[in-house]
């Protein structure tokens, strides 16, 4: 870190002469130490998974959830400073509630990402605050059907609305990742935290842009990726936390929910199995090496 001692890294609102904001870069370091989190945008839903590192054996297993629900249809996970993640969620929920107050409908995922992105960015502008020490993954489902105004009475024509354009695609799965700088993009697959490099290269192999991966497959892949990414920090214990949001016709009916225990455990079993298989392969290769000696 060449910046140390130059003085340009001490205040949030001060640029260095070469145009960098060091406080934001330090915040990124906080993220790089957090447990790995991934999000996968499948064709019929979104999966969010987290490698929750167990910090104490005195904490109840499967309690202290880290993936949060915002409104009904959006899930948020973050890597980095846990309290910063909590505050991020509080803000996201407030934005979603404010949207409902005015527009009387659920907030579209991209609008939520935009609003929380603005909020995170604002924390890079003032010397009185520090940037968020998290990278957050926001996943959700925008309804593919017509959404009534909240509290609606009456229903319009029995034959349905006139002049509708048939075959238009509306709503669907959405996934965004927001960094400490406030930068955010939409992704097919997103990963952050300690094992992000491994996770990203695994995500790239899935060819998510093709839009063929189903939610069911996505759950298994997400679990596997978290297990693969955990290989680098094998000494630490972890829990796999996993949630999903499906289409209205899918298992969660457009809501953000925890992946049911049975499905998660099956995915974990497969994840462990695939890791064992890889290990066996490696050992066999080593044996081959030995025989050559």
């Amino acid at each position: 870190m060449t910046s140390i001692g130059t003085g340009y890294d001490l205040s949030n609102s001060v640029f260095s002469p070469d145009g960098r904001n060091f406080q934001v870069e330090y915040a990124v370091k906080a993220v790089e130490n957090g447990g790995t989190a991934v999000g996968i945008r499948c064709k019929d839903g979104v999966v969010i998974a987290l490698e929750k590192l167990v910090t104490s054996k005195l904490m109840k297993p499967n309690a202290n959830k880290r993936i949060a629900t915002v409104d009904r249809h959006i899930g948020v996970v973050s890597s980095g400073l846990v309290p910063d993640g909590r505050h991020f969620v509080v803000r996201a929920r407030a934005e979603a509630a404010e949207w409902r107050k005015i527009y009387k409908a659920p907030i579209p995922v991209h609008s939520l990402a935009d609003r929380v992105g603005q909020y995170v960015q604002a924390h890079t502008l003032y010397s009185s605050v520090r940037p968020f020490g998290i990278t957050a993954i926001v996943g959700g489902w925008d309804s593919e059907t017509e959404v009534p105004v909240d509290g609606q009475v009456g229903s319009g024509p029995s034959t349905g609305a006139g002049g509708k354009k048939e075959g238009g695609k509306h709503g669907g799965p959405f996934l965004y990742m927001i960094e400490p700088s406030g930068l955010f993009w939409g992704y097919y697959g997103a990963a952050t935290g300690k094992g992000r490099q491994t996770a990203k290269s695994e995500l790239e192999k899935l060819d998510l842009a093709a839009g063929t991966l189903t939610l069911e497959q996505g759950v298994k892949e997400a679990a596997r990726i978290i297990y693969v990414a955990h290989e680098d920090s094998k000494d630490k214990e972890f829990e796999l936390e996993m949630t999903w949001i499906s289409s209205l016709s899918g298992p969660t009916k457009g809501r953000h929910e925890e992946v049911p225990k049975e499905i998660r455990e099956e995915a974990e079993r497969l994840a462990k199995k695939s890791l064992d298989d890889d290990d066996d392969d490696e050992e066999e290769e080593k044996k081959d090496d030995k025989m050559e000696e």
Partner: peptide, 15 residues
């Protein structure tokens, strides 16, 4: 109706 809808949303924050 909307007030109770908001209440229901908040109730479901916990998993």
């Amino acid at each position: 109706d909307r007030l109770l809808n908001d209440l229901d949303v908040k109730e479901n924050y916990s998993h």
